[in-house]
Amino acid sequence: MRKIFLGVLAVTALAFTSCSDDDTTAPSTSVLNVNINGLENLGANFKYEGWIIVNGAPVTTGVFTVDDSGKLSKTSFVVSSAQLAVATKFVLSIEPANDTDPKPADTKILAGDFTSNTASISSSGIVGDFSKSAGKYILATPTDGMANNERSGVWFLDNSSGSATTGLILPTLSAGWKYEGWVVMNGTPVSTGTFTDPAKADDNAATSTFKGGMGNGPGYPGEDYIQNAPTGLTFPTDLRGKKIVISVEPDPDNSTKPFVLKPLAHDVPADAVDHKAYAMGNGPVSAITGTVTR
């Protein structure tokens, strides 16, 4: 009887120990919460993807989309507890909808370091810091050789000194991003072209369908709206009273319209004269921010 009793005690003790070990086992997954305002709908061909940096390498936390009101399709993501605990940074990128690359694309839009269990994320440190951005432009149409429609073109240069100099003061963008100029005409944004260096002509200087036939214009970003107007508009036109905008666009671009980041903007004065430099002001959105908690 004594041996049987001792055996029962041993089994009971083993069972208790096993249960205790199970109770203290750490969970294998944890939840990462994302809170971001200001992102835009990327359409059907692109998506947002989050990443944590673990031992210097990116680990995906999952993908989400954003609707037209800016609401995220998903804000909580289940990830490895062990990896999340040692993650040093969070990064958000823009990825093709059918992406097969296991690494983040160049179009990284938000990033921030973890401090304890929170990361304050911003576009300023990963796309560019636009806090000191400034710009000037003139109205002119150098590509058509005519003097009767000089207020139908915009060029981002400064001629205040008597000779043309760079009109835009903008930071160098990270890989995966480009600048683009716009004129909003009767509610329709019409591009002046994309560029990465404000001291050089934009990417479509030689191929623009809007410009005239007398060359490509000065070696700075800009556009003459002389021909081939979009539906609903007429070229040549008069840019007085229109809005001039500089946006920051993902490359490859997700849309033919301006992206949400717009560091510079200006309403052309109703009494503006051609070949005079006008200063731009701050745009409606110079940074996107948010927080991530683990």
Rank of each mutant, 00 (worst) to 15 (best):
S174T: 15
T65K: 04
G7Q: 09
G181A: 11
V31D: 15
P198M: 07
M146F: 01
G162L: 12
T194N: 11
V183M: 14
Y48T: 03
K108L: 13
A201D: 05
I121P: 01
L92M: 15
E249L: 07
I94S: 03
D251L: 15
A229L: 04
T65G: 00
N41T: 01
G217M: 01
P236T: 07
S208V: 13
K211N: 13
G135D: 06
T141N: 03
A206Q: 11
V78C: 04
P104Y: 09
T256F: 11
Y220Q: 06
T172A: 12
T65M: 03
I226F: 11
L9H: 06
N148H: 09
F16K: 03
F156Y: 13
N33E: 13
P171G: 08
P198L: 04
S76A: 13
E180R: 09
K47D: 05
I246N: 04
D203C: 10
T188Q: 07
G62E: 06
S120Y: 08
H266M: 11
P104F: 10
T100M: 03
S160E: 09
K257N: 11
Y220T: 08
E40I: 00
I4A: 14
L168W: 02
N149A: 13
S191Y: 09
V285M: 01
V66N: 10
G38I: 10
F210E: 03
I246H: 03
E249S: 05
F77M: 03
P96C: 02
D197K: 06
N35M: 12
D251E: 14
N41D: 12
S80A: 02
D67H: 12
G217I: 02
F16I: 09
P221V: 06
A13S: 11
I169V: 15
A229I: 03
A105E: 13
T194G: 11
P263M: 04
E49I: 10
D21A: 08
T88Q: 12
S208T: 14
F90W: 13
S30V: 13
A199N: 10
S131D: 01
L233E: 06
S73C: 08
G215S: 02
N282Q: 09
L84S: 04
N148M: 02
V183N: 14
K136R: 08
Y278W: 01
G135Y: 00
A199H: 05
M280T: 10
T24W: 10
L14A: 14
D67W: 13
V245Q: 12
S30E: 14
G128M: 01
I109D: 00
S123D: 01
Y278L: 05
I94W: 09
I109Y: 02
V184C: 02
D271K: 03
G187S: 00
F130S: 04
D99E: 00
A201E: 07
L6K: 07
F16W: 11
L14M: 07
Q227A: 14
T194A: 15
A82E: 14
K71W: 02
I246W: 00
D238T: 03
F64C: 00
I52A: 08
F210V: 08
L39C: 06
S81M: 08
G135C: 05
K262P: 02
D251Y: 14
V127A: 02
V248W: 03
T196Q: 00
G283C: 06
E223C: 12
D22Q: 10
T293E: 05
G167T: 07
K74R: 11
A26H: 09
V184M: 00
A15I: 15
T107S: 09
M214V: 14
